[in-house]
């Protein structure tokens, strides 16, 4: 069993907490320590953002994180090296890379999949590659036991869910609102309704993200789903943290959310 499936199997009724940070932000030397801090704060899965020059689906907070990482020249191969270094001390926590397709294209699907597996990556979420275009990428990922993670949006009609189910492994990620990352306003009732609908088509754990900023919302969302994804709130904290304090800040912030989830 791969790390993602094992992680969800071992939750035993608890909800998974999935934090997102951008690799290389605020600077590359801190990323691995920040990943360990997330685990210490109660993370079950880590989504690690691969910086991209044109993050079309991201709001200002994650755009700036991408720009900070790119200013240090962080590319996909560097991100893989960070995961490999993280794996030296943590062989259990699943790591999912999240980003845009072009860096993966540039490396080549097969080469990426091989290198990612070797580094200890467990899944890949490419924001701008819907299942319609994902045939070749899915094959390459499946061949290396990597899970293609898919987003499902409020605008996704039920007819599309079976297409997503065909490619998806690990878990699916329901985007709780129309908009870019970092937007506000999350409607928990609507989330509950959509998650129930998704369950009829997709037999994977369902995570919910976008717009979750505190323990209380996390808890409400967790009540109707399997996992909670928190991104912009954490990246904002990294941006605001004093030099060298990013890891500690993340750990504290995540511990509070974990406590709300487990309460």
């Amino acid at each position: 069993m791969n790390r993602i499936d094992r992680c969800f199997a071992e939750l035993a009724g608890r909800k998974a907490l999935i934090p997102f940070i951008t690799a290389g932000d605020p600077e590359p030397g801190q990323t691995v320590a920040m990943m360990h801090a997330l685990v210490a704060g109660g993370a079950n899965v880590i989504e690690l953002g691969v910086p991209f020059s044109d993050p079309m689906a991201d709001g200002p907070v994650i755009q700036r994180a991408s720009e900070r990482a790119l200013a240090h020249g962080v590319g996909l191969r560097d991100v893989l090296a960070m995961v490999a270094q993280f794996r030296a001390d943590d062989d259990a926590t699943p790591v999912v890379l999240m980003g845009y397709l072009n860096p993966v294209e540039a490396m080549g699907y097969a080469e990426f999949a091989k290198a990612a597996r070797a580094a200890g990556v467990d899944g890949l979420l490419t924001v701008d590659c819907p299942p319609e275009e994902a045939e070749a990428l899915s094959l390459a990922l499946h061949a290396e036991q990597l899970a293609p993670i898919y987003l499902i949006a409020p605008t996704t009609p039920a007819e599309r869910l079976s297409g997503i189910a065909r490619h998806a492994r690990g878990y699916v990620y329901y985007v709780s609102l129309k908009g870019v990352t970092g937007a506000a306003n999350l409607d928990v009732t609507e989330v509950a309704r959509r998650v129930a609908e998704i369950r009829q088509h997709i037999q994977l754990p369902i995570g919910v993200g976008f717009g979750i900023r505190d323990g209380q919302t996390a808890r409400q969302v967790a009540d109707v789903s399997d996992a909670v994804v928190i991104g912009s709130r954490l990246v904002q904290a990294v941006e605001a943290a004093a030099p060298g304090e990013a890891a500690a800040t993340l750990q504290t912030l995540l511990r509070d959310i974990r406590a709300a989830l487990d309460a």
């Binding site: 079309m56 689906a57 397709l101 924001v127 701008d128 590659c129 819907p130 319609e132 275009e133 898919y150 987003l151 499902i152 949006a153 409020p154 605008t155 996704t156 009609p157 599309r160 985007v175 129309k178 908009g179």
Partner: peptide
């Protein structure tokens, strides 16, 4: 599907697909 040979297609976030 919007392809011109190997080019084109619909590479966007899920929210825009519909």
């Amino acid at each position: 599907q919007g392809h011109f040979g190997r080019y084109g297609g619909v590479y966007v976030a899920e929210t825009l697909m519909s």
